[in-house]
Structure formats: C-alpha cells, structure tokens
Design a protein around this nucleic acid. Structure first.
Lengths: 248, 248
DNA sequence: TACTGGTATGAATCGGATA
DNA sequence: GTATCCGATTCATACCAGT
C-alpha cells in the first residue's frame, strides 16, 4: 500500500490528476454552514462558528468556510466534476454534509455527473441539546456512482452509522472516527485507490491504508498537511512492522 | 381530548380550515418516489413500489402517487402554504420523506414560508440489504417553524429515532410506529391541536390523543378514513375508560 | 476488572447589546 | 431600522481518576 499527499488547493490539484485513476472518492469539504445571516456564515472562522465558546482545547482553525450558498454549490460542483473525470467507471463518491447543506450537496453531486445513490446518516450521540425542540445529532454521507454500481461483489454495507467523534487524541475540529472510515473505504475494490481532496488530519487515508487500499490526498493548510503526513507515515511503518513481525 | 376526521382531498379540506387554528402539523405525504425514471415512478401503483412482490399481506392501495418531481414540489408547496396559514405563531411542521425526495421537501417547506429547522433521521433496522453497496434504511422527518421556535418550554427531544415499522396488526403500507409519533406530538403544547392532512390509518391521531393533544385529520380514501375513524374512536373510549377507572 | 463519581464538551443556537 | 458582535446556555456522553 502507498499514499500520496499533495499540499495545495483541492481544485487546483484535482485538475492535475490523470483520468480514470481512482476508484473511490471520500471527502468532507468545509460545509460553509452555521450562522443566521450570510455574514454570520461567511465572516467568521470555523472555530468561531462550530466550537463552544468556553471550550478549552486549542485545535487549529481550518480554511474555506467563507462561501455563500451560491458559490458553495458552484465550487463543489466543479470539484466533484474533476473528481468524476479522475474516477474509473463504477467508481463511488461519498461526500459528508450537515442537514443544512444536504440539498445543495446532492445538487452539486448530480450536476457533476454522478448518479446519486443514497444518503447515509451518521449519528453522533454526544451532541448539543436544543431547548424546545429536536436536537440535531446527525451528519449525512451523500453517495453516488459513476455509471452503475458494481453489484457483482459480495459486499453488504450498513445504511447508517452511530459513533461519537473521537475526543481522546483529537487533532482536528471535525475529525472523523477511523472505524467509520474503515467501513466506507471498503466500497473501493481491494488494492484500488481512494481520493480525499480535503484530507484534514488524514483519517480517510489511515483507514484506506489499514484496509489495503492506496490513498491520494490533498490538503491546503500546511499545519494539517504535516499532521496527516505523520499519521499516514506511522500507519505504513506500523503495517510493515506488523507484516514483518517483531523479530525482523 | 377530541378529534375531527375529514373525508376528502387534503388541499381542498385544508383551504376550509380557519386561520391560526392548529399548533402542529405532522404529515406523511405520498412520496412519489421509488423509481429511477419518471415512467417508472408514475406507471406503477403505490402498492407495486412499496410492497415486495412476494409479500403475503394484503394492504389496500393508496392514491396520489402519480406526479413527477416538479409537480410534486408545486403540490406540496401549496399544501404546506395552506397548513402555514392554518397554524399559529411558533407552530411546528414535520414532513416525512425518503432520501430521494428530501431536497424537494425542504424546498417546498421553505417556499411555503416555514423556517426549516432541521432533519431527523428515522432508522428502520429491518430493511433490505443492498448487494455491492450501502443499504438504505432511513426515512427523514423535515421539521420547521412558523416564525421562531418557542424555547421557553422545558422540552428536549431526540435528534433521531430507531424503530421498525409495525408488522403485526399493520393496516397501511407506510404505517408509522405509534411510539415514534407519541414523541413527535410532544412538540405541540398540551391541549393544542395536531393536524395531519394525510391521516392514513390514523397513527398520528392516535398518538396525539394519547399524549393529550387534539387532532384534526384528512383522508381521501374511504377505506382508510373508516380504519382511522375506528382507531381514533377506540382511543377515546379507552381513554375515558382509563380515566374513569374500571369501577365506573 | 468492574463500577462510580466528577468534569469537560459538542461541524450551535439564541437573545440582546452595540455599531 | 439593520447588520454585526458577544457571550450564556443546555444535557447526554465520553473520558478519567479513584475505589
């Protein structure tokens, strides 16, 4: 197994990838959500919008949270269009989104040429309550296919996930649990390649390597590119160690 | 507690309801979903789409499944607009939908004037697996508010539900579990009124009465109007019996 | 190891002050 | 008025330390 980590803007890097070179795209773009007014959504940092004000942790901010709804759709569409081009026939795309951007995300996915195949709720039990109404404890994974789904494989995946965001050892505000990502990457044929244009701290890549898939990642922030590089490198070393055994 | 059951077309009946007369709208409109092509969707009856071919149960067909996506949105918008008019300030609306119609439903809800406040996944564990990919085991409850949410109440409701559709004693194809509906009606202030323009077999009404809310329902099919009437009537009798005690 | 009690926090939200 | 900013809020859950 191997990985490649590009440091740069997602769209710019995606344009340089060769045609039909990946089998699966899994990504968690900045949602550009939150806030009541347009300026609330676009004028504040991710930290200011999404982290409880009295939290004591010191996780780094992440960029890309300043698009209004219109440009978010256009931008995501172009990104998914490039991902489509770089994907093989029967490739699967998965995009994380919150409830507010879910319709926009399905629009962008379909506009980019993918066939929307379903929505997978990810339920996070440890979420804020909401006085007087229903709390919002889910994110959504919108998934689609280039062409048709390869249903010759003997593979049956769940329709939903229930898992809390990692708290111990967390390095990114929106870090995903690796155990969930390990299930998601199984949609990629063994030995295939998983692409994540918003690598963040690299959980998708860690999961891909653990499950025997190659990984191509892109990360803009140099801080997180460094974090991801370290996690991915550790994963490979660990794998080699495990394969070779402690005696080697 | 009391209930009123109108026998007729939802939109026609809604237009006759007085302004600001209900506090909560809960409904499960015919989704018009389930096929990939327009002719697939419109050419089959609801029963053919939602009931597996070898099912042994014998549920009556229900009408209203012959609209394409565009007209579904227009129709739902008009319906929710009337519901909005009939609702008081701070009233809450909840609309069931499947993943395919979720974006259309949020559009219609907002076009009708409601403030979209969230999406609640309802996970049905007993759903069919899908070879080669993720199964689809969720429906969604889109909820919104007329004006702003009344957050003076000491009420904290869940962000998701997990429950299988009733099997034993099921009388309607898309019948909802009463235990879920009993949670949903709690968003209505006690003694308030819950409106369901697509009553079906009347689960929403049963839940409303059990939780001490009044109910106004509309059902087109005379078969289901009769079924709902019987269930609602039984509920009231039961309640009187319980209140009065077995000695009375 | 299994349990118990203490503590921090969540891809927010909201009212109200300020500009 | 309108837009922006500030900070209080709310509980189930995860984690940790201690028994």
């Amino acid at each position: 197994m191997s990985y490649t980590l590009h440091r740069g803007d997602a769209l710019t890097v995606l344009k340089t990838l060769p045609d039909e070179s990946v089998q699966t795209v899994i990504t968690d773009p900045p949602y550009n959500s939150g806030g009541r007014t347009s300026s609330d959504r676009t004028g504040r940092t991710a930290r200011a919008k999404y982290v409880t004000s009295n939290s004591s942790h010191d996780l780094a901010n992440f960029p890309g949270e300043n698009r209004d709804q219109r440009s978010y759709r256009a931008w995501l569409t172009e990104l998914l269009t490039e991902a489509y081009r770089a994907s093989t026939e029967h490739a699967v795309v998965m995009v994380f989104t919150d409830w507010r951007q879910e319709p926009t995300t399905t629009d962008a996915l379909q506009m980019a040429g993918w066939t929307w195949s379903g929505t997978i709720p990810w339920i996070k039990p440890a979420s804020r309550p909401r006085k007087g109404g229903f709390k919002q404890d889910s994110e959504y994974i919108i998934w689609g296919v280039k062409g048709s789904l390869d249903n010759t494989r003997d593979l049956y995946l769940p329709g939903h996930y229930i898992a809390s965001q990692p708290r111990k050892g967390r390095v990114h505000i929106t870090q995903k649990p690796v155990e969930i990502m390990q299930q998601l990457v199984q949609i990629c044929p063994e030995g295939g390649t998983v692409l994540d244009p918003f690598t963040g701290s690299g959980s998708t890549g860690v999961a891909a390597l653990r499950e025997g898939r190659n990984f191509v990642g892109v990360e803009l922030s140099s801080h997180y590119a460094e974090v991801a590089e370290q996690r991915l490198h550790a994963e490979l070393t660990q794998e080699d160690f495990t394969l070779a055994g402690p005696e080697a």
